[in-house]
Design a protein around this nucleic acid. Structure first.
Lengths: 339, 339
DNA sequence: TTGTATGCGTTATCAT
DNA sequence: ATGATAACGCATACAA
């Protein structure tokens, strides 16, 4: 690897001139510019981001901490992040929190030590009191998926609360009267908001809430819980796709009659939701756009621009099947949005 | 952010001593060590990876280039990579190639400019002549998923060739006599090897090969192609999970009778493969282990250790259903390995 | 056991 | 329009 000094020597100019040619940061005569460019070509010169980073205190790198990239929600968000970052010549370091506060702290520390210019995270702590934890770091932070009510931490979320209400109302209008929510990990803002959206829409009808943990096992437990109810809900909304999978697998194996007689709704589209019989209805979040938007806000904050504290992106509700009301004929709504 | 100099001043020692305390790189009296540690605590000091990186020419960062992290194969490999990397205090920058040679080159260049210590990639060019392309870079490279026959580029692959043979033989033993392969993108070593494994096992029976593109659309086309055959295979092996999805969706929608009368085998486990009816048989690759192993090899190479040029990890074949031979009773093989 | 001083590759200030 | 040089934060060779 050749350095800026090698280039300068070969072009017969000073390192300052080479630097200015590279960055277009002051006037350089066409003559010398040509010399420099040629020398860079000859030496196959690539400026070292390290040297630059040390000097400018910016590595043009951002940190992305996901709960688990294996979860397609995070994978899609990440693609959005990466594409937006690349547009501005930023690269992305990825870490996992696995929904663990310890892991999350560690990840943030490591990222900062690596000199990232900013951090995107789905905060594991998103309770009303936890926000300040995230305000003490020396780099800008933007929260995605979960809302954080801290003065200087912008959040990018979806209106899943409304979408949950919309989904419940959709089936209410079709005559359903018993609803259940399999809620996610307590403490997450999404869990709270989706719970509120559910309560509001399900009232005054009979309804249940089962608290899962946002993991596959939560769905397994929910299935057993469901099977034990003397009177069962006819519509079950599951708070995330991992729990939905646990639920469906368990129902399929042990309680197929529940599976076939219950309307299941989940959040976030995945291939299997339409492959299982009956297919699940889905609240589709704009995952890629979440990533793009969050990255965009972070880059703006890095460049000291003002950004909105809360950005809310719209969901889309896709109704797929309704085994209960199927007895009286219905308009086809296999694959379209509900409203 | 405080620097090593701030710490030195506060502890009343030299920066050298502080540095040595941090890295344990020479003897320090318990007395002064305590002073330094306390000062670091007080100042909330975190050593800058930038400064260190510039000095040691190592940022403790590796690059991971995936075709598409949204594909769960790559997501799982990445988890393996990240966990191994973190063990050694390395962080990972992620880029996408999207199976495009231009994107891949760009990604490699960017990573090197960012000062990564090494790169993990699933090479888009893995033909016999392309290997040397990857040998010209200034940092160690390790290839995963696809084999590269270059002297200094180790590869981590699976024995999917054998696994393909095993799968075909499994159904051959059950009386099947017509086999098809939906092959992946041409030029990839995996496509080549799986093709060979298929040919070998399918002979001397009647067999077909359809060349897809490793993408969803390839599966859609394969479905049409399948429907147009006057005589159809009773066993179809699909070369990757994206094509399998395209195939299944299209069959389900337009040719359900083909879906229900054909044994489908795919590579890489995904939730939907067991949710679709009939469920797919699967060649399961040890994705996480691929990541761990590749990262391990790369770290070794970074530290100038000798590593094997080719590491082959074993697949597991999971047979799930066989609608054709179901007429005569069979031992249950729902979820176990085949051999 | 500890300190001094140099250099990694770059940008930016101050001269010229 | 261009050059000389200090500084960024750290590790390390050399001195003491």
């Amino acid at each position: 690897m050749s350095t800026i000094r090698d280039v300068a020597k070969r072009a017969g100019v000073s390192t300052a001139t080479v630097s200015h040619v590279i960055n277009g940061t002051r006037a350089v005569s066409g003559q010398t510019r040509l010399l420099v460019v040629q020398a860079m070509k000859d030496l196959n010169f690539v400026p070292s981001a390290l040297g630059r980073g040390l000097r400018t205190n910016s590595l043009k790198t951002i940190g992305f901490v996901a709960a688990d990239l294996t979860n397609s929600f995070f994978a899609h968000v990440f693609r959005g992040v990466e594409s937006r970052a690349r547009e501005s010549n930023y690269t992305v370091i990825v870490s996992h929190s696995d929904e663990d506060v310890g892991h999350e702290s560690e990840a943030i520390q490591n990222l900062i030590a690596k000199g990232v210019d900013g951090i995107l995270l789905a905060p594991v702590r998103s309770g009303p009191d936890d926000a300040e934890f995230y305000t003490e770091f020396s780099v800008p932070i933007v929260s995605y998926d979960r809302r954080l009510s801290a003065v200087n931490i912008p959040s990018v979320v979806t209106n899943s609360q409304d979408a949950v209400g919309e989904a419940i109302n959709f089936f209410k209008a079709r005559g359903h009267e018993r609803f259940a929510l399999i809620a996610g990990k307590q403490g997450l803002s999404t869990t709270l908001e989706r719970g509120q959206g559910f309560e509001q829409a399900a009232n005054p009808h009979r309804h249940w809430v089962f608290y899962g943990d946002s993991r596959y096992e939560g769905g397994v437990h929910a299935a057993r819980w469901l099977s034990e109810q003397p009177v069962r809900p006819s519509v079950v909304l599951v708070g995330n796709n991992l729990m939905a999978m646990g639920l469906v697998v368990t129902l399929q194996e042990h309680y197929p009659e529940i599976l076939s007689s219950t309307v299941l709704i989940t959040i976030d589209e995945e291939p299997w939701t339409s492959f299982v019989r009956p297919p699940l209805s889905v609240i589709v979040q704009p995952t890629h756009e979440i990533g793009v938007t969050a990255a965009d806000l972070l880059l703006q904050r890095i460049h000291h621009a003002e950004v909105p504290l809360l950005t809310t992106l719209p969901c889309r509700f896709v109704a797929r099947s309704d085994p209960v009301t199927v007895s009286h004929p219905l308009p086809d709504y296999e694959s379209g949005p509900a409203s």
